[in-house]
């Protein structure tokens, strides 16, 4: 059993708020809560799940599905990102 921290993830457009453990990727937490986020590869390759991270920090382990300039513009891939704080996502 993990006793990792639990963070809240707020989806700003839908108004949904879900919980996400520090050892859980954001996509899984969102899907488990019934959110519909487009995704395909689940390993940071295809970029299908790309979202805007309005606030908060994540630990993202992508495999090229997002470019540095997109990250600099506030985008991230929920499929390969674990929360480091409470998050607000534009979705």
């Amino acid at each position: 059993m993990s006793d990792a921290a639990i963070f809240s993830v707020t989806f700003s457009l839908s108004g949904r708020v879900v919980s996400c453990g520090a050892d859980e990727v954001v996509l899984d937490a969102a899907l488990a809560a019934g959110m519909k986020i487009p995704f395909t590869c689940r390993e940071g390759l295809c970029g299908t799940c790309k979202c805007k991270l309005v606030s908060g920090e994540v630990d993202m382990k992508h495999q090229g599905g997002i470019r540095p300039k997109e990250i600099a513009a506030g985008k991230f891939l929920p499929c390969c990102s674990k929360p480091l704080s409470d998050l607000v996502i534009e979705k």
Binding site: L45, C46, Q63, G64, G65, I66, R67
Partner: peptide, 25 residues
């Protein structure tokens, strides 16, 4: 355009910028 990978908009087959197929669900 500028992309991370070349991703097919139909079923998201994903290719590297060197043309290698990296992901096909």
């Amino acid at each position: 355009s500028n992309v991370g990978r070349v991703v097919c908009p139909y079923h998201q087959w994903t290719y590297g910028l060197d043309g290698a197929l990296l992901f096909a669900g």
